[in-house]
Amino acid sequence: MQRVCFQLQVRPDRLEEYKRRHAAVWPDMLRALHETGWHNYSLFLRRDGLLIGYLETPSLEQAQAGMAAHEVNARWQGEMAEFFEDLGESAPDVGFLVLEEIFHLEDQLGTADQTEAK
Rank of each mutant, 00 (worst) to 15 (best):
M1N: 03
Q2A: 03
Q2G: 02
R3E: 03
R3V: 01
R3D: 04
C5G: 12
Q7H: 11
Q7S: 11
R11K: 15
R11F: 10
R14W: 10
L15E: 06
E17M: 10
Y18R: 08
A23I: 08
V25D: 05
V25N: 06
V25R: 12
D28A: 12
D28W: 10
M29A: 12
L30G: 09
R31Y: 08
A32Y: 02
L33E: 03
H34W: 07
H34M: 01
E35T: 03
E35P: 00
T36H: 01
H39P: 02
H39T: 04
N40M: 13
S42Y: 13
S42I: 09
S42A: 14
L43V: 14
L43P: 00
L43T: 11
F44C: 14
R46N: 11
R46Q: 15
R47L: 13
R47G: 15
D48V: 07
G49C: 08
L50G: 12
L50Q: 15
L51I: 07
Y54V: 08
Y54D: 00
Y54Q: 12
L55S: 02
P58L: 01
P58H: 04
P58I: 02
Q64P: 07
G66P: 04
G66L: 04
M67R: 03
M67Y: 00
A68I: 07
A69V: 05
E71K: 10
E71L: 10
E71M: 10
V72W: 02
V72Y: 00
V72G: 03
A74T: 06
W76C: 03
Q77L: 09
G78R: 07
M80L: 14
A81V: 08
E82I: 11
E82S: 15
E82N: 06
F83S: 01
E85C: 07
D86G: 11
G88Y: 06
G88K: 06
G88F: 06
G88A: 06
E89G: 08
S90L: 11
A91D: 09
A91N: 05
P92A: 05
P92Q: 07
D93N: 09
D93R: 01
D93V: 01
V94A: 06
V94I: 15
V94N: 02
F96G: 01
L97D: 03
V98D: 02
L99C: 14
L99N: 08
E100P: 06
E101P: 04
I102N: 10
F103I: 11
F103V: 09
E106F: 04
D107K: 12
Q108A: 07
L109F: 10
T111M: 09
A112L: 14
D113A: 15
D113W: 11
E116I: 14
E116Q: 13
